[in-house]
Nucleic acid binder design. Structure first.
Lengths: 246, 246
DNA sequence: TGACTTCTGGTCAAGATGACTATATGATGT
DNA sequence: ACATCATATAGTCATCTTGACCAGAAGTCA
């Protein structure tokens, strides 16, 4: 009754981006999948991932698979859950440490796409390999829950953005319309965002203010008031080159 | 630069119980630790755990270590986080899947204690092996956060309990006094609890009602309204034998 | 110039929350 | 038997939050 084969460790990542959905006309969540080229579930779509390199940190491994499959780097990256059911993979036992990531929508359009890498709308996925449908559902739940109490929505946007754009992100993630005035009041009260003084010009209506994410306003993640991240600080990349209209 | 040794998988559990603290006079959180009998950190205290048995489910492995070290079974068990930093263990790489558990306080008093297993107050821990101080801090944060929006406090109690007992649990976990009347109003509005019709007799004051946990009131864990647990239902053991006073 | 659209500041009512007051009810001691 | 005591439990009041909604502001466009 002894099993000589030790469990194998894998790292996978659920990568979310926001893009327009031709079907509904609105912005919706999309995620990239890779086609299986080996036997368990050969031909089916699966989450990007791979075996854990023995010398690589967990989050680094997640970021690696993200870069390798899409060419992108995450603006937000956090561990989701570790799936290790005995039955989840035929053959030897696989324990998957799954991360979830948010990437900037404008960059997602440039992401690599080929025969074996494609983007799918998160709510209309095909049958995936392993328990990956299950995993994506959980990641979606986590994203939707966290958007409401945390300040991660800006990870889908560029360095500066209008409140309407930020609201669009929330509406797409939560799948319901939000009152513009109330949304403004809510965001302003939390202080997550700073007025740049600039406005977005060229729109066929009153030009909206451009805001920037407020780094100083402690991300309030993890235990205590401790500034340091917990258990490892979710990645929050800070951009470099601004490019806004007057 | 290749490392031939694959990472090793371990499962550890942070076990919480509520017991009176002689120092403060109040109920506080305690957790059992085991003494290291091998070399990395030999002699230091550490979280109960062990290598992942190849044929055992993750949560089962967590429950096993819990039973083996304390003789108890958890009333609540949930995965906490997976720690896998390269530097967290001297020697070969260890990836630890950590669970956290709540055990009934009355039973915790009966728990096995010997030279190598002891209970410590959660806020006055010695220096632990590996990154275990860090892990306990995170588990504490998780417990305190979750007590406020979830309904897990009853896991520390027996099948029936008074609102004062439930309030004591909240106060011990949150480390602050709660207004009895307001607490009652809050609990009653959520419907997490059902009046048994019984009262606790023998107390030197007005006899309080005895309540029971409301199983039907969906635990509301995980995505969607889906009744099924997510990603794996946190263990919520249901008791069997009632034993209350008239 | 006027129509149109979104931005943005403000009001109002309903509900949630914290502080606090008052009465209910059994055990205990004399 | 009765007063005392400690907690149980009901209710009040002011404050804060949240959703619904109204209205003026400020650009583009025909």
């Amino acid at each position: 009754m002894t099993d000589p084969r030790p469990p194998v460790l894998a790292v996978s990542t659920v990568i979310f981006a926001l893009r327009p959905d031709a079907e509904s006309g609105f912005m919706t969540l999309w995620l990239p999948l890779v086609r299986r080229t080996r036997d368990p579930y050969l031909g089916l779509w699966a989450l990007p991932g791979g075996w854990l390199p023995p010398e690589e940190e967990l989050s680094a491994a997640a970021a690696s698979t993200l870069r390798e499959t899409t060419g992108l780097s995450p603006k937000y990256l956090e561990q989701l859950y570790t799936f290790g059911d005995l039955s989840r993979s035929p053959g030897s036992r696989v324990v998957s440490i799954v991360y979830w990531a948010l990437v900037q929508s404008t960059e997602a359009d440039l992401a690599a796409v080929d025969e074996n890498v494609q983007w799918f709308p998160a709510d209309r996925l095909p049958e995936l390999a392993f328990d990956h449908n299950h995993i994506v559902e959980y990641a979606l739940w986590r994203l939707r829950t966290k958007v409401e109490y945390s300040r991660i929505a800006h990870a889908f946007l560029g360095e500066t953005f209008t409140l309407a754009q930020l609201r669009d992100v929330h509406e797409a993630v939560l799948r319901r319309a939000l009152d513009p005035a109330n949304f403004r009041r809510m965001i302003e009260s939390t202080g997550t965002v700073v007025d740049t003084g600039l406005r977005l010009a060229g729109v066929p209506h009153r030009p909206p203010r451009l805001y920037r994410y407020n780094d100083s306003h402690s991300l309030a993640e993890g235990p205590l008031g401790s500034a340091v991240g917990w258990p490892e600080t979710p990645l929050q990349s800070t951009p470099h080159s601004p490019r806004s209209t007057t």
